[in-house]
Design a protein around this nucleic acid. Sequence first.
DNA 1: TGGCTCATGTAATCTGTTACATGATTCT
DNA 2: AGAATCATGTAACAGATTACATGAGCCA
Lengths: 160, 160
Amino acid sequence: MTGYEIKKNIDSTLHFFWSGSFGSIYPTLSALEKNGYVTKQDVSGNKREKYKYFITQTGKDFLTDWLSDPSAKDELRYETLLKLFFSGSLGKEKTAQRIDAFEAKIRAELPFLEMCEANLAKAGDNPDHVNYLLTVRFGIETYNGYLRWCEGAKKLLEER
Amino acid sequence: MTGYEIKKNIDSTLHFFWSGSFGSIYPTLSALEKNGYVTKQDVSGNKREKYKYFITQTGKDFLTDWLSDPSAKDELRYETLLKLFFSGSLGKEKTAQRIDAFEAKIRAELPFLEMCEANLAKAGDNPDHVNYLLTVRFGIETYNGYLRWCEGAKKLLEER
DNA sequence: TGGCTCATGTAATCTGTTACATGATTCT
DNA sequence: AGAATCATGTAACAGATTACATGAGCCA
């Protein structure tokens, strides 16, 4: 893929749990090429400049090693919750409004994930599809957990 | 609180959705003092050096402003899922092992959250407690979502 | 007395984003 | 013709971690 295509792919398929900017993607691709993990190929033709990157055997070996290592760093920095944690002084009403806004955001994003799930459930022969489907379902289950929380949270605020 | 106490508190109560190292906490406290948001007080006595920080009115006003702004940046960088996404070549068995390991990690952390919930549900008069309880419940619901995903994921791998 | 926890802080480094800089191509 | 998208890349900056440096106090 090209750097631009990689960015597009991250933003669509991975965006639930990963992100990356051009400012990190292009320098990383250059570094990968310098280390022999990928090769760069000019596919501009007579059009504007455009370079596709291809993984090398060295790159594949390195990737396999990385995938084989089960250790993984999962980072969350959830400012929404940080604010909620310290918002006791804000009052119930405002807190409830925050929760509504959060709920709306989640509900707006769910259909996209469900569409991805439906598409991946159909095309099931490629072994990679199973993994794609698993990550999509992770997003769906997490979001459903969020929604359950919203429901309970609003109930709690009413009671107190 | 002292810088050390702040770190301890983050690691225990907030660690589900926030983190911070001494390398960021101490310089931040110095910056806050320089800007008049907190004051620093020597509470060493005849013991080893120890400084407590207290929020000023300027600090409280700034905090209220920050809390009142509903915009929040929620970041996730979930390497576990990133690896899963690209692990189609690893085979079903290894993938299932990964999921088991993830499930074990989550199950190990849940009792702590449930203990926090029980404690907070009891002491219910302080208005801040409601918010603490809400964040703990967020953790619990999210973790339950993860567990539901683990169950479904293992089923999917068996079927295919 | 040895090891863990308490306690403060800095320096080097790493990783990433935002904003900038540039311009072609395609769609309406 | 104008707007959106395609396409590459750099430079300045921001925010955080890790490792270092130091040492007191407490408990078994």
